[in-house]
């Protein structure tokens, strides 16, 4: 019973991490660049939801469209400032530029909102449900549902739409894609907008469940990075599996041992996976290497 409860909490937490990782993977796929500001974008989304809730006291679901639109705009700004000028430079240049941008976002939030933890409104309503002695927060269900919808939606978009094919063509070889008439610049900008919008959704959901402070972005990005590497660089499904693994260490393994040991074991597991499968658990998405 206790194990079940831990597993359920682990899956809910994993869904949250997967949401963070999703935007990270999208940008990785489209540009081959690591967006280290993704965690800070999640924090920005959380604070945006908090700020909007101050003006509009409505459930999170109604704030969601606003958050998505505003964050997509922020995503465009991120791509214009930190990616586009460096698109032909070595990927590590973007690594640093997004770290710098993360510093700007994090301290901008700290300046604007202050350092105190904040809570965004729940998606539908707060509280929790009980089944057969298992407790599950309504917001956890909302996170799992939204994560499933968005991950499925992104897969569908990439695999089965014209837009998705163009995005993938851009990801695989920008020059070839441009020669085939794909508007490469627009595709990259769109990816950043989409990734930031996803970060906004993640921020809104997590800022209710786990609260949000300006420094939380750093915790999120490290976990998303681990999830994406474990799952195989650039794989959406792999990132989901990686996020679940990270979360299970934080809940189930931590319950068997303790948090410090569980964190140590997570890194040990990570190294072991990389030693035996140097391309991640599910292999690398083809033709992508940052």
């Amino acid at each position: 019973m206790e194990f079940l409860q831990l597993a359920i909490n682990g899956i809910a937490l994993g869904a949250a991490y997967a949401l963070v990782a999703l935007g990270f993977v999208l940008i990785l796929n489209a540009t081959g660049a690591v967006n280290f500001a993704q965690g800070d974008l999640v924090a920005a989304g959380g604070f945006l939801a908090v700020a909007l809730a101050g003006f509009l006291p409505v459930p999170g679901l109604l704030l969601l469209p606003l958050v998505v639109i505003l964050m997509a705009g922020l995503g465009l700004a991120v791509s214009a400032a930190a990616y586009w000028p460096l698109r032909d430079r070595p990927p590590v240049a973007v690594f640093i530029s997004t770290i710098a941008l993360g510093i700007v976002i994090q301290n901008g939030l700290n300046g604007l909102f202050g350092a105190e933890p904040r809570a965004a409104p729940p998606l539908f309503s707060g509280g929790h449900l009980e089944f057969f002695g298992l407790v599950i927060a309504r917001q956890s269900l909302a996170i799992m549902g939204v994560a499933a919808l968005l991950i499925g939606g992104v897969q569908l978009l990439l695999k089965h739409t014209q837009l998705g094919r163009r995005l993938r063509a851009t990801a695989q070889d920008r020059e070839v894609a441009a020669a085939l008439g794909v508007p490469v610049g627009a595709m990259v900008a769109l990816t950043f907008a989409l990734a930031a919008a996803l970060a906004g959704v993640a921020g809104l959901l997590l800022a209710n469940q786990f609260f949000i402070t300006p420094t939380h972005g750093t915790d999120f990005i490290v976990k998303a990075y681990i999830a994406v590497v474990i799952g195989g660089w650039g794989r959406v499904g792999g990132a989901l599996a990686g996020a679940m693994l990270v979360a299970l260490f934080e809940t189930v393994v931590a319950a068997w041992t303790d948090y410090a040991v569980a964190t140590g074991l997570l890194y040990a597991a990570l190294l072991t996976i990389l030693v035996f499968r140097p391309q991640g658990l599910f292999g690398e998405a083809e033709g992508r290497r940052a």
Partner: peptide, 9 residues
Amino acid sequence: LMAYGLALL
């Protein structure tokens, strides 16, 4: 630190 980040960028 925001200014520092911008300068870095």
